[in-house]
Design a protein around this nucleic acid. Structure first.
Lengths: 165, 165
DNA sequence: CAGTTCCTGACTTACTTTGACCAATAAAAG
DNA sequence: CTTTTATTGGTCAAAGTAAGTCAGGAACTG
């Protein structure tokens, strides 16, 4: 297993104990995992971004820290946010896939639905001779279209109902 | 016996042990068989396609892997039929929507999944300035990609541990 | 020997890990 | 109170790791 994944797991375990936020010392954590401190930043910037539903604040100097806060939002807010802010008129494959994964983790869509949506916007599906820019426009349209469709359909595969609107 | 056949056998033996999926390191396997890494891709792309009842996912970079997932035998024939006979390289909106509806009626996919798939191949989603022919090629690719993804997942017997966060 | 299938290598893309240098803050010194 | 100095964390680019693609030559089949 990759170090980054291990660290991600570790942090998520910390979050689980303290439901909405957790604080860590970058250098301590790096030492604990025998890695460069910047590795922690890598993990944070690839797995704990706002796109992933987290917000980071930090403080340097003596007694510094990194605080990770989980962002909570109602279903409606989330949909609006996804549609307008995160997807917009164009989106690349990577971002689109992150959105699918995140919706799954939130329980908004099921595992299967996440796989289906990911498949629809994947490189594989759009591997057709059109310029990359246009592909990204297509991705945005397809993804938004699917999200709206799924929102219209209400109850997904038993969806936990955790912290909803 | 050709090398490809040997590698195919080897992978199938791995699959036999772990019934539904197996993971391998492309480079390791290539070294084990004293061949070019791309040979592994050749084997995968000629013998582990959806038509053969398999679906592949992979990850590059450090700690990368190739995962081979077996598609349930009971679904392979139907999937092959849909992929090759019903969809092919190009399909218009109407036919695509009919397929989604039929899959739903047969219980192969859920109502929500049908709506999502329909949305992905609808006129609305693909309303972008490209010739109609190309749109139909795109529809075919997207729809097939989604079908393969849905076949890969464990039976609709709802999604296990979506409990996450 | 024509057509297909097999195999390879050069090139490309994607993801991870590290290290050198930078910036902010608090504590200590002047 | 101002100036160091020590203590953190941040950034970014380069190196490392691993898989994908594709064109073309080799080997096999009929």
């Amino acid at each position: 297993m990759r170090l980054s994944d291990t660290i991600e797991e570790f942090i998520k375990t910390m979050m689980r104990e303290d439901q909405e936020a957790c604080e860590l010392k970058r250098n301590e954590l790096a030492e604990y995992f025998h890695c460069a401190p910047s590795q922690i930043n890598y993990v944070l910037s690839t797995r704990f971004t706002p796109d992933h539903g987290y917000s980071i604040t930090s403080q340097r100097g003596g007694g510094g820290y990194v605080r990770i806060v989980r962002i909570q939002a109602s279903r409606v807010d989330r949909l609006t946010y996804y549609l307008n802010e995160r997807i917009g008129d164009s989106i690349d494959e990577q971002r689109a896939l992150i959105i699918c994964r995140q919706l799954k983790e939130k329980g908004t869509i099921s595992d299967r639905e996440a796989e289906i949506m990911s498949a629809a916007v994947s490189r594989g599906a759009l591997g057709v001779p059109v310029p990359e820019d246009l592909k990204n426009v297509l991705r945005a349209r397809i993804l938004k279209s699917m999200l709206i469709a799924s929102a219209r359909q209400r109850p997904s595969a038993q969806d936990s109902g955790a912290g909803e609107d």
